[in-house]
Design a protein around this nucleic acid. Sequence first.
DNA 1: ATGAAAGCGCTAACAG
DNA 2: CTGTTAGCGCTTTCAT
Lengths: 336, 336
Amino acid sequence: MATMKDISKKANVSLSTVSAVINQSAYVSPELTKRVTDAIKELNYRPNAVARSLKKKSTETIGVIVTDILNPFYPPMIKGIEDVAFDHNFNVILCNTSNEHNRISTYLELMLEKQVDGLLLANIATSADLNEIEKTGLKYVLINRKPPFYDKNFVGINNTLSSELAVNHLVRQGYKRIAFFGGDLKINTARERRSGFISCMMEHGLDVDPKLVFEGEYSLDSGYNNVKKMLMEVEQLPEAICTVSDVVAFGVIKGLRDAGIRVPDDIAVMGNDNSAFSEHFLVPLSSVDHSSYEMGKLSMELLLQVIKEKEAMADRQIILTPSLVVRESCGVNRNT
Amino acid sequence: MATMKDISKKANVSLSTVSAVINQSAYVSPELTKRVTDAIKELNYRPNAVARSLKKKSTETIGVIVTDILNPFYPPMIKGIEDVAFDHNFNVILCNTSNEHNRISTYLELMLEKQVDGLLLANIATSADLNEIEKTGLKYVLINRKPPFYDKNFVGINNTLSSELAVNHLVRQGYKRIAFFGGDLKINTARERRSGFISCMMEHGLDVDPKLVFEGEYSLDSGYNNVKKMLMEVEQLPEAICTVSDVVAFGVIKGLRDAGIRVPDDIAVMGNDNSAFSEHFLVPLSSVDHSSYEMGKLSMELLLQVIKEKEAMADRQIILTPSLVVRESCGVNRNT
DNA sequence: ATGAAAGCGCTAACAG
DNA sequence: CTGTTAGCGCTTTCAT
């Protein structure tokens, strides 16, 4: 690879002149400029970003840490991140922990060593994890989940509202006895969606049967297993099931099907997330869209601001508004 | 951030001693070693990978270029890549062209500047693209698709066989009049799958009606539109449809459904890819698994070898064997 | 076995 | 306006 030195020789100018034309950081006479650009072309010169980074202490690279790229929630988010990174000539180092929690420390160290300019982390839910992140001293923004009392840079979604949208739809469809298939209550999104469900039910003057409120995980298996459990333990089945996320809804529908229960004819099922595939699922899933592409985009834009700002800027929490997506899994309005 | 210099001062040893203990590149007396490691801990020192890279001319970073991370084909592949990268302390810079073909040049330049140790590129199908890649002088391996006459490092799948598996299954189910919904014939995978289909049909002594062989793209819309076309143009519908990929099959099934044609009762549909959601699709899709996770893994392993080898090593083409996955979309055996 | 010093390719004072 | 020079943080001969 040609270096700046090669260019300076070829063009018969000094190093700083070469640097000046490359970075347009100072006026250079048209003549010298041409000599330099010609030499660059001739030698097919490309600046060495590693050397530049060493000097400038900035790599124009950020790290993105996600738990499982196989989860359909992530690809749109990553695309959003990558799109704005690309527009700003930043690169994205992808770190996929594959749900192995201990990988995160290793990634954090690697990112530190590689001198990334910042970090984007999806689904950090515990103070312990947050601590590790803080210890790196890197700039960062959290996405989607957040640890207790977290009040720094964040972009997420109004989870309470997402449940309300779901319940309202179900109620409008005429369902009254509604179950909730939730997630891990250690995670704020699961807590908020659950409480949004309960309060909205009360708002409608509807009972929530404690036997019909399940905890679980954000996984298909969790939905499937909780259906089994419900079928065993509950004598009077619900008319509708409100789930904490689409993947859970997928599991629920599978479980119901396996038990010979039709969706939506016998029981309606509502998702939450609107993941890529819900539209094409066994039974097209009504859901609540969280626009994870937008989340990715906004989080990267926020991070970029944080990075550019020399002085620490005020932290910001961006909360997106979810929107209802009606498909087939909750049937047709019963009232009409 | 603490630097090696800080450590050397604190531990009262020379820079080279510090370097030696960090890299275990030379014997250092236990005593000095301890002084150094203590200092490292005390100052919470992390080596600066940028500086190291500048010196060593290697970044332990590779670039991965894909066309669209939203395509369910990619996440498993990327996961495979990332998993082996992680095991070797490599990082992955993700480049998502979002199907904007011109983005690829920009990414290539960025990767060059960032001095990545190598490149993994999925779905490079033209000689023009290949040329651009070659011009960078970077080490690379191609995944899945390949340009005409390409005989360098590659990991892909036996596309001919994938069609044969599909046809054999369909024939075994008793179908005789079988359509083929293909892809863009400029792409080798589409060509190979198509010719695999035709030759396997002939092998079985079955006619292939030219009106029942469609070109298209690897997209849902393509499948959908070709169904419409078929419905308009063909008087006698096929008993089964063999598709070039799952997304096409998705479109086909949607199109058939919209026309009131049931799958598999009226027409059977076979996928090819076995993408993540096929199992949960409207009608669970029978398909041919390409194990894209494995492809990702193997390609990264191959690239790592290429990078480690000082002398150019012989190029290698790894062709994986697909396997049949039977679900519901091709119905139950008609012969029994 | 340890240390001194040169240099990776670039940027940014500073001088002229 | 252009050139000289001193590093950025690290590795690696080469002496000692």
